[in-house]
Simulated scan of single mutants.
Amino acid sequence: MNTQSQSVFRFYNNLKLGQKLSVILLLIFIVGSLLSGIALSHVLTKNTEREITSQALILMDTMNSVRDYTSTQIKPELDDRLQEEFLPQTVPAYSATEVFQNLRQNQNYEQFFYKEATLNPTNPRDKADDFETQIIQKFRSGSIAKSVEGFRQIDDQEIFYIARPLQIKKSSCLECHSTPDVAPVSMIKRYGAERGFNWNLNEIIGSQIVSVPASTVIESARSAFILTMSIVLGIFASVILLINFWLRKTVVRPVVRMTKTAEMVSQGDMEIEFIKSSGDEIGELADSFSRMKTSFMLAMKKLNEMRRKNKEAN
């Protein structure tokens, strides 16, 4: 044990019982608060991520509904016109992206971003970047089955993302994306014949990605942390204070009172009594001191009697 530890140990040993209890309870409060804060911060961050992920998955399902509506009800009605004029509004990916942009006008969703990242897209804006390409390749290889989430950096900004595979499940999609010779002429004129072809049925060609700035996750978790931690600390502090008050009332004060009584008895005051205030161990200690006082009085009486007889005999 080093010198500093010895000094602390001596300092603690020299404290009164009430002070020792206060120090111990204070240490419990500090350590408990730190551990609770660390655990609570982790739990709330994960909970916030789960909530945002849940919202993102709902948004993806909504966009899938928009895609299905576009491909099954909008596009068939305009097939004849598409041979003369290409309408991007009939493309499921385009309609889903545009609907999401409108949805972002709602302040509840303005922090969310949506992209149908594709390896070989018709529209250049859907081209997957290097990070998104890695995610798509993992979906294609089967190393990720349904969805993936995490953090990434975009232009020095940390982003929290949720991604799901984008798979060709309907043969109608191949009318525009199988080979250039069967694609609408108007589409070829607009986008060319180099991109967005040679797709196959059931092939994973991209990924739906919903993202939000990491600051949104952090701020949401921080707000919840401050509120919850304030409540926890308030309850914890109240409990510590109540325990401190109870220990001082039921342990420290009776012990101090018995100490003073014992000191007065040792000085010859036999009229004072040890007060028993409870039936617990402190009360039993008061009974023990009372018996000790009685025994002490009897011993002193016998001693005085012996002294008197010796004096008479001499």
Results as ranks from 00 to 15, higher is better:
Gln6Gly: 07
Val8Gln: 08
Phe11Pro: 00
Phe11Leu: 15
Leu15Thr: 09
Gly18Arg: 04
Gly18Met: 01
Lys20Thr: 01
Leu27Trp: 03
Leu27Met: 09
Ile30Glu: 09
Val31Thr: 10
Gly37Tyr: 05
Ser41Thr: 02
His42Tyr: 11
Thr45Gln: 10
Thr53Arg: 06
Asp61Glu: 07
Asp68Asn: 11
Gln73Phe: 15
Glu77Cys: 13
Asp80Phe: 09
Leu82Ser: 03
Gln83Ala: 10
Glu85Gly: 01
Leu87Phe: 03
Pro92Ala: 00
Tyr94Gln: 04
Ser95Glu: 03
Thr97His: 06
Phe100Cys: 00
Arg104Met: 08
Asn106Trp: 12
Asn106Gly: 04
Gln111Thr: 10
Gln111Met: 12
Tyr114Glu: 04
Pro121Trp: 04
Pro124Ser: 10
Arg125Ile: 15
Asp126Pro: 02
Asp126Thr: 11
Lys127Trp: 09
Ala128Cys: 05
Asp130Asn: 08
Thr133Gly: 06
Thr133Asn: 05
Ile135Lys: 06
Ile135Tyr: 06
Ile136Gln: 02
Gln137Ile: 02
Ser141Phe: 08
Glu149Pro: 12
Arg152Leu: 11
Asp156Pro: 08
Ile159Tyr: 04
Ile159Val: 11
Ile159Lys: 00
Ile159Leu: 06
Tyr161Thr: 05
Ala163Tyr: 08
Arg164Asp: 02
Arg164Gln: 07
Leu166Lys: 07
Gln167Ile: 08
Ser172Val: 14
Ser172Cys: 09
Glu175Tyr: 13
Val182Leu: 10
Ala183Tyr: 10
Val185Pro: 01
Ser186Trp: 05
Ser186Val: 02
Gly192His: 06
Gly196Met: 11
Asn202Trp: 01
Ile204Leu: 02
Ile205His: 04
Gln208Asp: 11
Pro213Ala: 00
Ser215Cys: 08
Ile218Leu: 12
Ile218Ala: 13
Arg222Trp: 04
Val232Ile: 13
Gly234Glu: 01
Phe236Cys: 08
Ile240Gln: 06
Leu241Asp: 05
Leu242Pro: 12
Phe245Tyr: 14
Trp246Met: 15
Leu247Lys: 03
Lys249Ser: 11
Thr250Tyr: 10
Val252Lys: 01
Arg253Tyr: 14
Thr259Pro: 00
Ser266Asp: 05
Met270Arg: 12
Glu273Asn: 06
Glu273Val: 15
Phe274Glu: 06
Glu284Cys: 08
Glu284Tyr: 13
Asp287Leu: 13
Phe289Gly: 05
Ser290Arg: 05
Lys302Trp: 14
Lys302Ile: 14
Glu305Tyr: 08
Met306Tyr: 11
Arg307Cys: 01
Glu312Ser: 08
Ala313Leu: 15
